[in-house]
Design a binder for these strands. Structure first.
Length: 975
RNA sequence: GCUCGAGUGGUGGAAUUGGUAGACACGUUGGACUUAAAAUCCAAUGGCCAUUAUGGCCGUGCGGGUUCAAGUCCCGCCUCGAGUACCA
């Protein structure tokens, strides 16, 4: 009987679905284990072979854990709000919900074909109102909370109001806006409702604030740095400017220290932890306040510029200050003479993306404001400049510039001929700044002279405090997260506006369902797409969304027009899976207490500072609220690497004939040979006749669809021309054998590069088990690697060989023999058990596939068809190739699924050897091998080796200087 | 720019604490079976040199270093990839 994967895979996928083999309950005698994949955004392109890589790995692990006796939660769902569906809606008018539904169905079909052991009864979709009702609910909880630094946790806003009523805000140690004004209890109680709300907004964990964004007026939308190229939008090339907008923000900065500290309890890849550590960017230093000197014609009185510095010890080295061009004070302090220059500079920087500004250190630009600040100690005037190397969003958006101690300040000072005073003893700072804290000795600095870094910092902070112009401070690079998007396809906020102030809709009225709109574009007045909705007002009395016409600002109010960002719904989905159908609460305590958290999370490292940081933030908030039992949601995390595509590039030569381009395609080998020939005319290359006729040419790479290219890189020219009819009449210069070879290049797998390989086609030709095995066989899970279908015949061959191992009967019929296995059989089996178990535990899936191959090769050579051995082997391979394992298992006479069959137990006694083949090295180079009993002592080994005639041949009469013997490992003779 | 990761045969990759570099596959070449093809099986396969078997030299991105011994550890580079706050 042949290995018929199609029949087998269909059969078992049907069986699993019918019997709900992988459905789990929230309680069990067994120990729990939670294996999670990062859920996908269902894009229109469908799955490509890169997507399932992590899913296959986690599925292997989940299945392995079931064999090991655990109650395994292994869910899947969709992160189904997002931009692509909205873009498609803008282009075609099709509702994003329809696009999303179609895409999800396609994804599901593709996922089912690979044979994953997901519990689909727990599926969640972030765009489902039954799900996003809870996203909205958590938003309300954040709005109704503030962060108490004393308790170091989030607390109910009602507690804060109680404090304000009793004692005002002066004693409150909370994370809040910078510009909170102190008030007494009496003052609080005298505030109007509106004033109270305004004050509270400065404390809430989600709040409205002015934020800098990349605004594209032509598109009427905000752009990511990603979507900007050289100051214009990637799509359409429209100008983009930096602009301030009122948006919802999340006070993630309140959790900065805890997010940093708890990294230590996480078993996550170090690079990922490093990324979060750097993102949070804790630095210790001081805040220093510089007074702006009053001048003729400037109207600013009492202006102060607060700065944060990690080097307060260098304060006497300050020779200028630099403000971000967007800094609030800039226009206020600029002198009339400088106004024009400053204005122009601000306009110029408004066009640059933040990333450009950070990356470009070579171009030094800036402008002088004409204003001066006063040095806190020397009282000397310090010129105030603006420069785009200072970012508005980082720190206070202003720096005290110390050119002798900071390279960027140094570059700036040199460029604009600003003095570079030296405050370091015995260091030359004329060429470059001196930033070495360890070897710092301060000079020319009044009371700091002669002090090292640490001592000087302490002293200067003390002096600043005396002056009332500064104090020690810990600064975080982490900024509060902007939570508003001017998009349609996202969660609506449960928020309406009364008197210009945001009000939460009561939780019992959730979900607030996304309204229908005519168009998915921003409105003509520049409002977000929800501005197009005709029924988007909140009737407080009816507790319902009603027509905008009813808005009277008394009982009917306008609703929020922004929607939430992509990361909102993905920041708690892992908890919702534990209790996905709960309509009473976000998740029950019972479910949370049983599952606790994710035991293994697999996903891409590109989520390091987005999803994975925001999720940790929400988890901590929910933990503070007593809603989840763990302060971290995922104990262990593994990053899977990206699978890159292998693009096929046909070489096209472009000539110019009568001012018009003229093309031919040339086989890559033919072209290379032509280009290699020294004078390009002596050979008889077919390219030559074109050159003689048309002159010089330019070589271009044209992407060909990888499905038209075989494993030897030969292009099916007919298919290529049928696909791109504009090449119908173009000449193809082929090789002498009539083939046409293309060159290959590894690139990101992408539709536009025609290098996408879908898992469907692989399943069609080789089967899901081969796909699973092959994806693992490609290389280490964490590494990125190119996809090349060529090698899949290897694992497919292995599958057939595995099948034959169980079908050694007449005409390939199923055959196993009862009785005791041979010593060789057992040695092979237990060697395999040991290695496979170690590999799964260590997430080294590629090496376990190799181990299976070796095992099957050995058992085939041994002509093993012993039941005991073959049953164990079926279980071993079941996590990797579950369909064939189920089929073999049932043929072995079992009537239930293999899914929970106990994993074979490794027995070391079968591997004991009596001899060891020692590699014998001379001066570190292996020369020959010598078989010796394993129980020899060091001395005995040395004696035996030296006595061997081959050793004497190597030494040729020399006496060895030294003999290194590592028992069980190696012998090295020096001399 | 900054942060992190990766460079090993023609290709994907393997190699416990430093201890036989190239496991396992792909590809290629030769052979068996076959009318033929497919499938399957056997053999060879890092490079160079030599050859009757035996052998010798070089070799893990580049340049140094530590060690009896370095793909692995240390120092200095080069190249590629990822992230860089509104792609998800």
């Amino acid at each position: 009987m042949e290995y018929d994967f199609k029949k087998i895979e269909e059969k078992w996928q049907g069986y699993w679905a019918e019997n709900q083999t992988f459905k789990v309950e929230n309680n069990s005698e067994k120990e729990k284990f939670y294996v999670l994949d990062m859920f996908p955004y269902p894009s229109g392109a469908g799955l490509h072979v890169g997507h399932p890589l992590g899913y296959i790995a986690s599925d292997i692990y989940a299945r392995y854990k079931r064999h090991k006796g655990y109650n395994v939660l292994h869910p899947m769902g969709y992160d189904s709000f997002g931009l692509p569906a909205e873009q498609y809606a803008i282009q075609t008018g099709q509702h994003p919900a329809i696009t999303t539904e179609t895409n999800i169905n396609r994804y599901r079909e593709q996922l089912d074909k690979i044979g994953f052991s997901f519990d689909w009864s727990r599926e969640v979709r972030t765009s489902d109102p039954k799900y996003y009702q809870w996203t909205q609910w958590i938003f309300i909880q954040l709005f109704n909370s503030w962060y108490d630094k004393e308790a170091d946790k989030a607390r109910d806003i009602a507690d804060l109001i109680a404090i304000f009523q009793k004692e005002g805000n002066s004693a409150v140690n909370a994370v809040c806006d910078e510009d909170v004004v102190p008030f007494t209890a009496a003052a609080w109680n005298a505030f109007s409702d509106k004033e109270k709300q305004q004050v509270l907004l400065q404390y809430r964990l989600t709040y409205l604030a002015e934020t800098e964004v990349n605004w594209c007026p032509a598109l009427g939308t905000v752009l990511a740095n990603d979507e900007m190229v050289n100051g214009v939008s990637e799509r359409g090339g429209h100008p983009v400017i930096r602009k301030k907008m009122t948006q919802w923000s999340m006070r993630i900065s309140a959790y900065a220290q805890r997010l940093l500290d708890d990294l230590s309890i996480l078993d996550w890849p170090q690079p990922l932890k490093d990324a979060q550590t750097n993102w949070i960017g804790r630095s210790e230093g001081a805040s220093v306040s510089f007074k702006v000197l009053p001048q003729n014609n400037t109207m600013v009185a009492d202006a102060e510029i607060p700065v944060f510095t990690t080097r307060p010890d260098t304060i006497f080295g300050v020779s200028f200050m630099t403000l971000a061009p967007e800094h609030d004070l800039v226009l206020k302090i600029t002198t009339p003479e400088q106004k024009e220059e400053v204005k122009q500079y601000i306009e110029a920087t408004a066009k640059r993306s933040e990333r450009d500004r950070m990356a470009d250190v070579k171009t030094i630009t800036g402008a002088f404001t004409g204003a001066y600040a006063e040095h806190p100690f020397t009282k000397e005037p310090i010129p105030i400049w603006i420069g785009d190397y200072v970012l508005a969003g980082y720190g206070t958006g202003a720096v005290m510039s110390v050119p002798c101690g900071d390279q960027r300040d140094h570059d700036f000072a040199r460029h604009f001929n600003i003095p570079i005073p030296n405050i370091f003893e015995g260091v030359d700072v004329s060429e470059e700044a001196f930033a070495d804290k360890e070897n710092t000795v301060i000079a020319n600095s009044d009371f700091l002279n002669g002090m090292p870094y640490k001592k000087a910092v302490k002293r200067v902070i003390h002096e600043l405090e005396q002056l009332g112009q500064g104090k020690g401070k810990i600064n975080y690079r982490l900024r509060d997260a902007v939570f508003s998007r001017q998009r349609y396809w996202g969660e609506p906020f449960p928020v309406y506006y009364k008197d210009g102030l945001p009000q939460m809709i009561a939780a019992e009225h959730l979900p607030i369902v996304l309204p229908e709109v005519e168009k998915y574009l921003p409105t003509e007045t520049g409002e977000p797409p929800l501005g197009n909705a005709t029924h988007w007002a909140w009737d407080v009395e009816a507790a319902a969304v009603v027509s905008n016409k009813s808005i009277d600002h008394k009982t009917v109010f306008p609703l929020e027009l922004n929607t939430m960002p992509g990361w909102a719904g993905s920041s708690f989905y892992f908890n919702r899976y534990m209790d996905p159908h709960n309509t009473e609460e976000v998740f029950s305590k019972e479910a949370m207490d049983y599952w606790q958290g994710v035991d293994l999370y697999i996903g891409g490292s590109e989520h390091a500072t987005g999803h994975l940081l925001y999720s940790r933030f929400w988890q901590k908030f929910l933990f503070d609220k007593g809603l989840v039992p763990q302060p971290e949601f995922a104990k262990k995390l593994i990053n899977q690497g990206m699978i890159t595509g292998t693009s096929a590039l046909a070489k096209r030569l472009q000539f110019e004939v009568e001012g018009r381009p003229f093309f031919i395609f040339v086989d890559v080998d033919v072209l290379e040979e032509y280009l290699k020939s020294p004078d390009k005319s002596s050979g008889d290359s077919p390219v030559e006749e074109f050159v003689k006729k048309y002159g010089d040419f330019v070589v271009q790479d044209i992407h060909a669809d990888v499905t038209m290219v075989d494993s030897s890189d030969h292009l099916d020219v007919d298919a290529f021309v049928a696909w791109q009819p504009e090449y119908t009449d173009v000449t193809f210069v082929k090789n002498t054998d009539g083939s046409f070879k293309v060159s290959r290049e590894v690139e990101k797998m992408s539709k536009s590069k025609y290098n996408v390989v879908s898992p469907d086609s692989i399943c069609e030709v080789y089967g899901a088990d081969s796909l699973r095995l092959y994806e693992m066989f490609l290389g280490p899970l964490e590494q990125s690697k190119p996809w090349n279908t060529a090698g899949i015949t290897g694992v497919y061959g292995f599958m057939k060989k595995l099948w034959r191992l169980y079908h050694g009967g007449a005409q390939g019929s199923f055959l196993v023999t009862e009785g005791a296995p041979t010593a060789d059989n057992l040695k092979t089996l237990h060697k395999t058990i040991k290695k496979v178990e170690e590999d799964i535990e260590g997430f080294s899936f590629n090496t376990s596939v190799a181990t299976f191959m070796i095992c099957v090769n050995e058992l085939a050579t041994q002509k093993c068809n012993n039941r005991e051995v073959l049953e164990s082997l079926a279980i071993l391979i079941a996590p990797y190739a579950p369909h064939i394992a189920e089929e073999l298992w049932s043929r072995l006479g079992h009537s239930t699924s293999i899914a929970t069959a106990p994993f074979p137990k490794f027995q070391p006694e079968y591997l004991i050897e009596s001899t060891k083949e020692y590699p014998i090295s001379f001066n570190g180079k292996m020369r020959f091998k010598l078989e010796l009993p394993v129980d020899l002592s060091k001395e005995e080994i040395e004696k035996a080796v030296l006595a061997d005639s081959k050793t004497q041949d190597q030494l040729q009469g020399r006496a060895p200087k030294k003999v290194i013997v590592v028992p069980g490992k190696i012998v090295n003779i020096v001399g």
